[in-house]
């Protein structure tokens, strides 16, 4: 039940994307997400979609597994689509009762939905192919330059690592407590909003108690091993760029150039022809 949420989870398998340096993936994801909002024409979408499909194929993560995680954001997606569909003014396409759908609205709804989907899949592709530890390692090293302005980069990365590490543990714990309370006849699914909220109490109280207990244990274990922050700390597996990482950077750059060029170019030609 609760384990079906796959957003932000790591998918264990072996692929080029999995082996890539996390810094490449972080920057790549950032570039991709920004690029999604830079173009305004079909060609741009096609390039972005093609790039995403290529990455998905390279990642060896089953597409069905990715989609399963998307269910939880379906609601937000629907709201975006509906708002854009009904609340955009322009040339009327259909009109009945108080509802009018415009051509612009339809266009906007479709493009927004497409963008959001690509955005979410693109971002989750990173977390699916990178372990939390790797991710924070990459973040720590990639943002090292911020130390110049006294940013506690290591501490932030450590906090992130711990937070990410705890997601699957807490999910598992939730699953366990949920089952234990179900075995005692608890009912999480029926009733109105108030009843459902109250039904969460037997789940949330033990969950908080166990989260605090785990946090306490972890703090103790870290202290027992003399953890004292990032100064002078060395890595067992330092991040070093390999050939494939440079290749990935080049591909990324190529993608960026193509998408900007295509996107801007046709906007310009469109402008010219409309004149």
């Amino acid at each position: 039940m609760i384990r079906d949420i796959t957003i932000g989870q790591y998918y264990q398998t072996d692929s080029v994307l999995h082996r890539l340096d996390p810094r490449v993936k972080l920057l790549g994801t950032l570039v991709y997400l920004v690029s999604l909002f830079c173009f305004h024409n079909p060609a741009g979408y096609a390039v972005a979609l093609l790039f995403l499909i290529l990455c998905i194929r390279l990642s060896h993560v089953p597409f069905g597994y990715m989609i399963k995680g998307m269910k939880s954001i379906m609601f937000i997606l629907m709201i975006t689509i509906l708002f854009n569909l009904f609340l955009t003014s322009g040339t009327v396409l259909v009109s009945f009762w108080k509802i009018t759908i415009t051509v612009e609205g339809l266009k906007l709804a479709i493009t927004m939905a497409l963008r959001l989907c690509m955005l979410i899949i693109g971002a989750s592709l990173m977390t699916l192919t990178t372990t939390p530890n790797h991710l924070t390692d990459g973040l720590e090293k990639g943002l090292r330059f911020l130390k110049v302005i006294k940013m506690p980069v290591h501490e932030i990365a450590m906090m992130m690592a711990i937070a990410l590490r705890f997601i699957p543990i807490l999910l598992e714990e939730t699953d366990k407590i949920m089952k234990a309370q179900l075995a005692r006849g608890a009912d999480f699914e029926s009733g109105g909003l108030v009843r459902r909220a109250r039904a969460m109490v037997p789940l949330l109280v033990p969950l908080f108690v166990s989260a605090f207990r785990r946090a306490n244990d972890l703090a103790m274990a870290m202290e027992a091993r003399c953890y004292r922050g990032g100064d002078g700390r060395t890595k067992m597996k330092p991040l070093i760029y390999a050939g494939r990482d440079y290749a990935a950077y080049i591909i990324l750059l190529a993608y960026l150039v193509i998408s900007i060029f295509l996107g801007r170019w046709s906007v310009m030609t469109e402008l010219l022809t409309s004149l």
């Binding site: 366990k176 407590i177 089952k179 234990a180 309370q181 075995a183 005692r184 109490v201 037997p202 109280v205 033990p206 108690v209 166990s210």
Partner: peptide, 13 residues
């Protein structure tokens, strides 16, 4: 069919 889980004390609330 009553089921007492492992470390059942974690379910007290």
């Amino acid at each position: 069919v009553g089921l007492v889980f492992q470390y059942p004390e974690h379910q007290l609330f």
